[in-house]
Design a protein around this nucleic acid. Structure first.
Length: 320
RNA sequence: CGCGGGGUAGAGCAGUCUGGCAGCUCGUCUGGCUCAUAACCAGGAGGUCGCCGGUUCGAAUCCGGCCCCCGCAA
């Protein structure tokens, strides 16, 4: 790696993956002028504001913080005043106008958690999992006015293990992202990288996740249901409905596993049955979902064994 | 004052409407049975029924206030 004068950086990002990338930039002694992150979120009934992981780290390291509601004229003026050499964006969560992207001398780079042009958009990690993909990766690219359509500077692949879920995969990708970024910045400043156009014909877009996407359809393959569980681990989770004494009650499946080698008798799709002495299963297509921890709406999370002590009629019902 | 569910033994729940001995399943302890077991049989321990006040001969239950947990919406 060539020696360069380190560019001054404004970092824009919000969740854990952004925090890890930011931390590595900080540890490598890049001058960070400011971080920009989403406004604090105040949940009802909780005493404390939830602050983004990026903000938490910035507070710890005494880096100036901006949390604009909108990226408007005032924000632009503020940013111009900082005269950054480079903007780094990682999972920021808002679309950034191109006037802002154009401010830094060395433009704006985006760290995206997929192998572009695959999985452009807001939720690449979850979509890699729901699609059952065998590999994904990190792309660092120049930002333009489209969503993840900019020219590619560098990429790194990672294989997705069958036991990976959103948490573990995000962790792995974050580490790769932070290293790839540190390797890429000097080459970009030195102009020793030629940006590559994306092959638009190969592009796929990932849709924004909604809470309702967590609803389980018991006619789906067991493996697909399990993939959804892995992808939605942190949010929105997966859920189904149980008819108990005439009431439809929402049940979240917070901890499950899957058995795809089906043996023995089959049940109705969505039917709950005793899969073995210690396992409670739900029949899905081409496999069985094994319950670990579940949560009835309005109640605390419990193990399925505890749940059955209170609701013995659970076994034999059919989930909807 | 956004909408809704909940707080009962170590865990999960019923009982509350219609006030009248504190219950169920599991766990735990003791004993029995068994080659053996997360099995089976018998017995026991374990409760401030979230907190405060009110009504009543009598309150987990009815009335008023408060605290806490959770789901939805944002």
């Amino acid at each position: 790696m060539n020696e360069i004068k380190k560019p001054t950086i404004v970092f824009m990002g919000t969740p854990e993956i952004a925090e890890i990338v930011l931390e590595n930039i900080y540890l490598k002694n890049y001058p960070i002028l400011a971080v920009v992150t989403q406004p604090d979120y105040q949940p009802k009934g909780k005493p404390d504001n939830l602050i983004s992981p990026v903000k938490k780290l910035a507070l710890e390291k005494n880096i100036p913080i901006s949390q604009p509601q909108r990226l408007d004229v005032d924000f632009k003026k503020w940013l111009e005043g900082l005269k950054p050499d480079l903007i780094i964006v990682t999972a920021f969560g808002k679309i950034i106008p191109k006037e802002i992207l154009a401010i830094p001398k060395h433009k704006s780079l985006n760290v995206h958690a997929s192998l572009l042009p695959k999985l452009r958009g807001a939720s690449p990690i979850q979509n890699a999992l729901t699609n059952g993909m065998a590999e994904t990766g990190i792309t660092i690219m120049l930002m333009d006015k489209g969503i993840d359509t900019g020219d590619i500077l560098s990429q790194k692949k990672i294989s997705i293990e069958s036991e990976d879920d959103y948490v573990t995969l995000t962790g792995k990708l974050a580490v790769i992202a932070s290293h790839l970024l540190i390797d890429t910045i000097p080459d970009w400043i030195n102009k020793s990288i030629t940006p590559k156009k994306q092959d638009t014909a190969q592009a796929t877009m990932c849709q924004l996740i909604e809470k309702s996407d967590g609803k389980i359809n018991w006619t789906e393959d067991a493996q697909d249901i399990y993939n959804k569980f892995r992808a939605f681990r942190v949010w929105p989770g997966i859920f189904t409905f149980w008819e108990n004494k005439g009431n439809l009650q929402k049940i979240s499946l917070n901890e499950i596993s899957v058995e795809i080698n089906i043996s023995g008798k089959r049940y109705h799709l969505g039917e709950i049955f005793r899969y073995s002495d210690s396992k409670i299963g739900i029949q899905a297509n081409n496999g069985v979902i094994i319950l670990g921890k579940i949560q009835l709406a309005g109640k605390n999370e419990t193990s399925v064994d505890d749940f059955l002590n209170g609701y013995p009629n659970f076994i034999g019902s059919i989930l909807k």
